[in-house]
Design a protein around this nucleic acid. Structure first.
Lengths: 198, 198
DNA sequence: CAAAGATCGAACCGATCGGTACGATCTCAG
DNA sequence: CTGAGATCGTACCGATCGGTTCGATCTTTG
C-alpha cells in the first residue's frame, strides 16, 4: 500500500514502509543505479516525504543496509539455533540457508559487499565491515563449540567459505555452490577434531 | 609521459598508454566514481583522443577489465608454474601471491567483482564470469594433479577460498588472510588424498 | 470547526555526467 | 614543402542527478 494520503497516524510507520520497499529495489538496481525520483515512484512515496524522513539518499542507503544486516544475521542465527547442539549440524544449516538464498531469482550476491563496492563512502564500508564481523562471530562460535584449537582462525576460514560461496554463486554458477561449500566447511571442522583426537 | 602532442608514430601506442594509466585510477575510484573529464586529466589525454580510441566509457572500462583479467591470471599461472611439481606447493604459491596483493596499500578487493557490483552492464558481468572461469580452471588443474576424485568440485571449493579470502582481506582484515586461506586449502587438498589412500 | 502537520505531485535548481564539435598545434609520409 | 591525421584544450550539448520549494489535499488533535 502506497502510504495513506495525509496522516499523523504514524510518523514512524511511513519511515518503516519506505525502508521496507526501498530495500529490494536498491539491491536489484544498485545503490547508484537508480535515482531518487524513480526510487520514490517505485516505493509509492513523494520525494518530499522521503527527504523529511531520511534527509539524504546516503542516509536512506545506510538505514537500508543496517536493517538488512540485522535481518540476515538474525536469520542465520536462528537457523543455527534450530539445528540442534552438534556444531557440524549448525554449520550445515548455515550453508543450507545460503543455498536457498542463491536459488532465489533475485539473488545478486551479498548486498553488503555490493554496496561497499558501489558506494565509496566511509559509512557504507563501516556497515559492511560490521556485518562481516557479526558473521565471523557466529562462525567462530560454531568453531569454538566444535573444540577448535584456534576458533578464531577456523571461524575466519569458514567466513571465507561463506563469502566465497556467495561470490561464486553470484558470478559463476549457483548450482551446488552451497553444497560444495558445506562439504568443504565440514572437512575443515572435522580436520580440527581429528587433530585434537590424535 | 603524457603522450606526444601530435603523432602518427603509433596509433596503437596511445591506446595502450590510456589503458595502462586508466586501470589503477578506475580501480581506486570505482568505475562510476570518476567522470571522463577527470579521468582524462589524470591520464594526461584529451577527451577527444580517448573517445576516438574507445568510442565509449563503457568500452574503455571493458578493455581495462579484459587486460586486468589477463594479467592477473597469467601472473598467478606463472607463480604456480614456478612452484614446482607438488600440487600442495603450487596451491601454496597461489595464496602467497594473494597475500602480497592484500598487503599492497592500494588493495581494494577483486577488481572484477567490484566492477560487476558497480556497473550493471551485461558485458562487464560476462568479463567477470570469464575471469572466475579462468581462475577455476587453474585451481581445478591443481586439484586434478593432486589426484582428487572430483577435481571440478575441489577446484570450486578452492576458488571459494580464494575469493573469500580476498573479500575478508578487503572488508575485514588483511592480516593473515592469505595464510589462513592457504592452510584451509591445504587441508582440503590433503583430505582428498587421505580419503584416496584409505 | 479550526489549527497542526503529514503527504502528494510537480515545478524548479545547480551540478555533474557522457559525449560532441572546433580551431590550433604538432608529426609524419609523400 | 605540403597534406593527412593525431592530439590538445575548451566550449558546448542534452540528460540526469540529488535536493528544495510550494500549493493543494487529507487526517488527526483539540
Amino acid at each position: 500500500m502506497p502510504v495513506a494520503k495525509g496522516s499523523t497516524i504514524d510518523p514512524e510507520r511511513t519511515r518503516a514502509t519506505i525502508l521496507e520497499a526501498a530495500t529490494p529495489v536498491l539491491y536489484e538496481r544498485g545503490l547508484d543505479g537508480i535515482g531518487v525520483a524513480e526510487l520514490c515512484a517505485r516505493i509509492g512515496v513523494s520525494k518530499e516525504t522521503l527527504y523529511r524522513h531520511f534527509g539524504t539518499k546516503d542516509a536512506l542507503v545506510e538505514a537500508v543496509l543496517e536493517v538488512r544486516s540485522d535481518r540476515v544475521v538474525s536469520w542465520l542465527a536462528s537457523a543455527v539455533a534450530a539445528a540442534g547442539e552438534e556444531p557440524a549440524d549448525q554449520l550445515g544449516a548455515v550453508f543450507d540457508v545460503l543455498q536457498k538464498w542463491y536459488d532465489e531469482p533475485v539473488f545478486r550476491g551479498c548486498a553488503m559487499l555490493n554496496a561497499a563496492a558501489q558506494h565509496h563512502v566511509e559509512a557504507v564500508r563501516a556497515i559492511t565491515a560490521r556485518h562481516l564481523g557479526r558473521y565471523l562471530e557466529l562462525l567462530t562460535g560454531i568453531a569454538s563449540r566444535a573444540g577448535a584449537a584456534d576458533p578464531h582462525v577456523l571461524g575466519r576460514q569458514l567466513l571465507m567459505l561463506v563469502e566465497g560461496a556467495t561470490v561464486v554463486a553470484a558470478h559463476q554458477d549457483a548450482v551446488g555452490a552451497g553444497e560444495h561449500a558445506r562439504r568443504a566447511a565440514l572437512t575443515l571442522l572435522s580436520a580440527v577434531r581429528t587433530s585434537l583426537e590424535a
